[in-house]
């Protein structure tokens, strides 16, 4: 059947169609604001970030030390068992060198998002964060890094209390 169809529907518009006013559109700017509760596990995680520490939860059923922490183990489906402090050092599991913002505007200095496997958490328990004090071309998978914290007065109980992770 498809080979017999000569005219496929769908009309492509070009920029010119808009410039010359050939197309009518309606604009709407939604105003939506949210106030998210951090929750039980992440609430404590944020409080400890304010203190300059990283905290995880251990599940005694599977033995995993979970980061970010959660109050239930999604694999064992039981409550997790106890709070465990982990280190603020780790290893770069993977990373990117990002030159654009979400709306595709080019950045002057690239961002270095990375998955960092944190020392003290179970193997493979990475978190998303940023790298700093390193030239983009020098970043490597397997690179050892340490958190660079904001000063105690600047810290507010947020993931951004760690400014970035730098090579050690």
């Amino acid at each position: 059947m498809t080979v017999r169809i000569k005219e496929w529907p769908g009309t492509a518009l070009s920029s010119k169609d808009f410039e010359t006013g050939r197309v009518l559109t309606v604009h709407h700017k939604p105003k939506a604001e949210y106030r998210w509760d951090a929750g039980v596990a992440i609430g404590r995680y944020l409080r400890e970030l304010k203190e300059g520490r990283l905290i995880a939860r251990r599940c005694n059923a599977c033995g995993r030390i979970l980061l970010p922490p959660r109050m239930f183990c999604e694999e064992c489906f039981v409550p997790t068992s106890e709070w465990v402090f982990v280190k603020d050092t780790g290893t770069v599991n993977t990373f990117s060198i990002c030159h654009v913002r979400w709306d595709m505007v080019r950045l002057k200095d690239p961002q270095l998002p990375a998955v960092i496997n944190v020392d003290g958490a179970s193997p493979g328990m990475g978190i998303l964060h940023l790298l700093g004090e390193v030239r983009p071309e020098d970043v490597r998978v397997g690179m050892r890094v340490q958190a660079v914290w904001k000063s105690p007065e600047e810290r507010e109980g947020a993931i951004t209390d760690i400014k970035y992770w730098k090579p050690i």
Binding site: Y34, W36, P68, T94, P113, L128, H129
Partner: peptide
Amino acid sequence: AFLTIFDHTTERPLGPNLLWIFAIEMNR
């Protein structure tokens, strides 16, 4: 429209965009 895919407390404050996860996965 994709920015809310990231965790609102532990990831979104870092200013992620969708390309990050693909670039990060591709690199791995």
